[in-house]
Design a protein around this nucleic acid. Structure first.
Length: 571
RNA sequence: CGGGGUGUGGCGCAGUUGGUCUAGCGCGCCUGCUUUGGGAGCAGGAGGUCGCCGGUUCAAAUCCGGCCACCCCGACCA
């Protein structure tokens, strides 16, 4: 490609509404432009990176036995009714009507569609297992699109679905895809790790997320030396045994006036008690208006994902003032477990060890001291309901957990028979019995990988691409292109590289050297060959690696082989 | 959706106590000359219904009302 003809314009200044490195650089390097909130145009330079990622994924999926197909983006409502997700999905689902008023949605994911397709096509256990995948644009009307292409409302995803005869066989398929994913992200040059994750709205029994390690990541992850790694949403926490109750320590309940003090820290200061003496009581709503009281230790926070999972619902929310007042008889801030009627109480492990704890009195401007579980209130269940904090220990090995951040680029789920049962997708087994498919589903955010790669690879000058997904592998930079000697040598090298099948671009613009160097650095092309009269006098050109910006001189006729060996080594 | 903020040539911004604003600056863009190893210099030039609608006024980018768009902070997700 000739840069003089290429549809690329780079920006010197940082766009004001881009606040992450990858977003800024993708715009500055001319990869993407914004059309509307969360909706982006991919320009040729950006698309090249996207396609490279896509090709790596396709290659590995095929090697893992996958078969590519292509499903529609516009999906009829009835299939979504059958799975129940038309009602469940909420406003994130983009809904549209056709001219006859029939309802459709723009697919946010494709479990229903593929399950229905496989149901119509496959009838026998002999045709199983199957692993099907596609690259498709997905639509999710995100509450808050963010970070450019990282959280967009329309984005490119590779989604795969597996169909197996049994749980065991599905397990094996899951393992296969899991390994495949590891190879994909490795080939994309990413530093990542797989963590245990919450299953969320997709459903199913078990899942892993593939996290690209980055401080700007939206996800919190915990890791342990023993190998345990999980999304903070999912991270299991054990039962604490530190504070054992001793008989006779329990003191009688005592109401104390705490005028206007609502938060744990306010009341704690006022009473001179540490926050871990408090039983934080939160009223949550779920389902059709049911309420539940959730207790955690004062210095901890409720993990709503765990609460949702326990309740078996898709949504929980903190109850509003009115409902709290109705339940507790007091305004928000004074709720407590003692004397609650008409709602169940769930206690996190962290509150069962609290002796003579403090909580709201369910009465305006009052708290209660010396609350003890069992004696003063009964919990319907005591379980793991909180978020991990610094200092927590691993459930598997009791060592201290480490916290880090990550960008979720892939997610694998064991779905079981959730969708096949809902859509009555059955096959006949060897005995002639009808059985629902045992399914798995596996997503990769293709456009997000591109952003994540930049998030992990850049410096103050611009992007530093991994060789495998760089839009171009080499750029040939002639300084003074119109000088015949320089033109001849740079064109020769350019054409040799082209003929050898490399992705190469030549900066044949009439620009000053500084402009060309800065653009080369900004766009992050891994190898740069500079052709200028200085080194040409010695019959040499300069070879610079974008990473580290180290330059060496190589003889003109060795340039091709030098570039070849660099690329082959890195791909 | 709740809270905070911003809308002025392609990009980044100034101007906003109403009147030298006939809207300005830097970058970018076009033409010419000079220049050419890390974002050149000079000269000339193109490009804006000041987000939209309405109001107040002799006079509105500037004041008032409504709407829209976009961004940031929280819950949702590849």
């Amino acid at each position: 490609m000739r840069l003089s003809e290429y549809f690329l314009s780079t920006l010197k200044e940082i766009p004001k509404d881009a606040d992450t490195v990858s977003h800024q650089l993708m715009i500055r390097a001319g990869m993407i432009r914004k059309l509307a909130s969360g909706i982006y145009e991919f320009l040729p330079f950006g698309l090249r990176a996207l396609r490279k990622v896509e090709n790596i994924i396709r290659d590995e999926m095929d090697k893992a036995g996958g078969q590519e197909l292509y499903l529609p983006a516009l999906l009829p409502k009835d299939l979504w009714d059958k799975s129940g997700r038309w009602a469940l999905y909420g406003p994130e689902l983009m809904r549209v009507k056709d001219r006859n008023g029939r309802e459709f949605c723009l697919g946010p994911t494709h479990e229903e569609i593929i399950t229905d397709l496989v149901k119509r096509e496959i009838r026998s256990y002999r045709d199983l297992p199957k692993l099907l995948y596609q690259f498709q644009v997905k639509f999710r009307d995100e509450i808050r699109p963010r970070f450019g292409v990282m959280r967009a409302r329309e984005f490119l995803m590779k989604d795969a679905y597996s169909f197996d005869v049994s749980q065991e066989s599905a397990e094996e398929t899951y393992r296969k895809v899991f390994d495949c994913y590891n190879r994909i992200f490795k080939r994309c040059g990413l530093r990542f790790r797989a963590v245990e994750a919450d299953t969320g709205a997709i459903g199913g029994s078990f899942s892993h997320e593939f996290m690209v390690v980055a401080d700007t990541g939206e996800e919190g992850i915990i890791t342990c030396g023993c190998g345990y790694a999980a999304n903070v949403e999912k991270a299991e926490l054990g039962r604490e045994s530190s504070e054992k109750k001793a008989p006779g320590q329990e003191k009688p309940l005592e109401e104390v006036e705490t005028p206007g003090m609502k938060t744990v820290s306010e009341v704690g200061k006022f009473l001179g008690e540490p926050e871990n003496k408090f039983i934080k009581s939160l009223v949550y709503g779920y389902g059709k208006g049911e309420l539940i009281v959730v207790l955690v230790r004062g210095d901890y926070e409720v993990n709503e994902a765990k609460l949702r999972k326990y309740l078996g619902v898709n949504e929980v929310f903190l109850a509003d003032e009115k409902r709290i007042e109705k339940l507790t008889g007091a305004p928000t801030g004074f709720a407590g477990p003692v004397g609650i009627k008409n709602a169940d109480i769930l206690a996190d492990y962290s509150v069962e060890g609290i002796v003579n704890g403090i909580s709201g009195a369910n009465k305006k401007d009052y708290h209660v001291r010396n609350i003890n579980i069992g004696r003063d209130y009964k919990a319907k269940a005591v379980l793991d309901l909180r978020k991990p904090v610094e200092g927590d220990i691993c459930v598997k090995c009791a060592k201290k957990l480490a916290f880090s951040r990550g960008i979720e680029v892939g997610h694998t789920f064991k779905l079981g028979t959730k969708y096949s049962e809902a859509l009555q997708a059955d096959f006949l087994d060897r005995q002639g019995d009808k059985k629902p498919f045992v399914m798995g589903c596996y997503g990769i955010g293709v456009s997000r990988i591109v952003a994540a790669a930049i998030e992990q690879g850049s410096d103050e000058k611009g992007i530093i691409w991994p060789m495998s997904i760089a839009p171009f592998q080499v750029t040939v930079v002639p300084l003074k292109y119109d000088e015949p000697g320089i033109k001849k040598v740079s064109e020769e090298i350019y054409n040799d590289l082209l003929k050898s099948g490399y992705d190469v671009i030549i900066d044949d613009r009439d620009e000053r050297p500084g402009v060309k160097f800065n653009d080369a650095d900004l766009t992050g092309i891994p190898v740069r060959i500079t052709v200028g009269d200085r080194s040409l006098k010695e019959k040499k050109v300069e070879l610079t690696l974008r990473k580290g910006l180290k330059t060496e001189k190589v003889p003109v006729d060795e340039a091709l082989s030098a570039v070849k060996s660099i690329i082959e080594k890195q791909i």
